[in-house]
Design a protein around this nucleic acid. Structure first.
Lengths: 329, 329
DNA sequence: TTGAAAGCGTTACCAC
DNA sequence: GTGGTAACGCTTTCAA
């Protein structure tokens, strides 16, 4: 079923069919309707390959998902964003490509690009100075990076992130409750979420007598790391994590140490997920609607109208409370 | 950078370049080496689009992931399989496409196929009588379905699933412990995992005085459903779920009812995940190495050597024990 | 308003 | 062994 078949069936030339289907002017309304009907009856669809050989418009975007064990929310976030894009991208195909880590992801991106598989890329889970962005810049591939704005410029031409300052809100909220000793437990300290949280915490505590400590531990080691935190002489009164898994680990570690959450220690999950609502007490978390980031990404890809990014917000549930009163001696 | 550039640079015709690069015979070894070197120097890569216009070999396979809220393990399982495939597929591109549900997935598949985006498809999260398989059969697209073998034939020509009988092992294990009243709490009763677990439980309890009940509840409603189970006069002594999220919900419901796991009730998660190891007690679960399914899938796609599917196994942790002794009156 | 024809980058057939 | 060259299905320019 090719354009030639349609042209023959409609009794016109292939040029007319092409015009009619791409909404170009130069075809009579009658002919256009006729052609459209014939095409529909034959249920013809233009070959993506043939089309992309002639045109250099954006016809297919590649979204790179990281499969690394580092950030567990990563995969679901990428898929969530992909689902959102699917609804927004019209006539543009979306392919999710899975990479093990940013480095091999960069190689994959270069390959995809040089084989003309995609005309643009979306890269989430950005590291500072991410190799994928560097490679894309080198070969000239359009890239939209999903990352909080990084002061030193990430190298990406186009960057999309949530509006508002949920991460600062986390800090402010904890500070307002009275917390002054906060630990950020992150699976990866230079992940996007960790960086955003860290700077948010620093902003909120600026000018106060307070400490913000970053502890890095893979999600497998998060339990042990949390346990260690709680055995310290001076244990933090609040723990913020960069993902739901790590938060869960903190919850279990606390339970193990007979610390009651939220009275003895507050816990905030840096990423909201179904698990956050399934544990008891339910986890206070930062909800990031990756799905709704899609319009802004489409705009950045120049395949959609300008769109404001959605807002990430702090969802206060049951794991946060004022710190325990200091023991008076 | 096209084949023409390479030909010019190497001082040969494009036909020779094509032959040399595709390992065809009919080129002298000297020429082949020379061409290969030039191509490498120019770092030329064949255009996937141009290539696929001429050849109808499998060059790109589409893996459909379901984004539905129904099964949460789904997304990560699909991504895990994708990661495995990426390592196994050589010279064949892999694109994950996200669909909201099997029905819209079927539409997407038809579209992808008719636009010649992919030459074969991999479909996980199969339902009985899945629309995606029906559509693929209708249009003639090669499909590999990831599903336990279904007696009435799923309609898919090619089917891949785990070896062994982990699901039966679940049933046998519970029966051996003494359980006779088992509930299968599933987010979706006709999901692949649920079906496998159900038939496994039935097989294990065959010929015994035992009841196996299936309760369907979305993961959001799983908590409520589990709570209901536990208030019943005759509550089950073991609950098997089709996913880690549901299992987590059951654990919380039990805790809420002051039922101690595993002494008062046993819980088995039908899918293993990081969360299963993070809760206390750790969840007994069925571990399915989706990643290792890749070679078998590649074989089914006829892009790799025959491969035996990996084994799913029951990982016994802390949420299973003999049922409580009946109260003697 | 329509049609013929020239590419786009490959592969593969057929001469040389 | 090697070099022309005709497809593949589409878009787009240029004439009619």
């Amino acid at each position: 079923m090719t354009i030639t078949d349609v042209a023959r069936a409609a009794g016109v030339s292939i040029a007319v069919v092409s015009y009619a289907l791409n909404g170009r002017r130069g075809v009579s309304e009658t002919t256009r309707r006729h052609v459209l009907k014939v095409a529909q009856d034959l249920d013809w669809r233009p070959s993506a390959a043939a089309r992309s050989m002639r045109t250099d418009a954006v016809t297919s975007v590649g979204l790179q998902a990281l499969d690394g064990t580092s950030s567990t929310h990563s995969a679901s976030a990428a898929l969530d964003l992909a689902a959102g894009l699917r609804g927004v991208l019209d006539g543009v195909a979306l392919a999710v490509e899975v990479a093990a880590d940013p480095r091999s992801g960069a190689a994959d991106l270069e390959r995809s690009w040089s084989e003309r598989r995609h005309t643009a890329f979306v890269v989430p889970d950005l590291l500072v100075d991410d190799p994928r962005v560097r490679v894309a810049a080198r070969v000239g591939a359009p890239v939209v990076a999903i990352t909080p704005p990084v002061p030193g410029a990430g190298g990406a031409e186009r960057t999309v992130w949530f509006d508002g300052a949920a991460e600062e809100a986390v800090g402010r909220y904890l500070v307002d409750l009275g917390h002054r000793d906060i630990v950020l437990l992150a699976a990866s300290a230079d992940g996007d979420v960790s960086r955003a949280l860290h700077s948010g915490l620093l902003t909120a505590t600026a000018g106060l007598v307070a400490t913000v400590t970053v502890v890095e531990a893979s999600s497998a080691a998060a339990g042990a790391a949390a346990a260690r935190l709680f055995t310290d002489e001076q244990r933090p009164t609040a723990v913020v994590t960069d993902g739901d898994l790590t938060a869960l680990a903190v919850l279990e570690a606390a339970r193990h140490r007979d610390l009651r959450v939220p009275w003895d220690v507050s816990v905030v999950s840096g990423a909201d997920a179904a698990t956050c609502r399934l544990v008891d007490p339910q986890l206070t978390a930062v909800a990031r609607p990756w799905h709704d980031l899609a319009p802004a990404v489409a705009a950045a890809l120049q395949v959609g109208p300008a769109a404001a990014p959605p807002t990430a917000r702090l969802v206060i549930r049951g794991t946060t409370a004022p710190p325990p009163a200091p023991v008076v001696t």
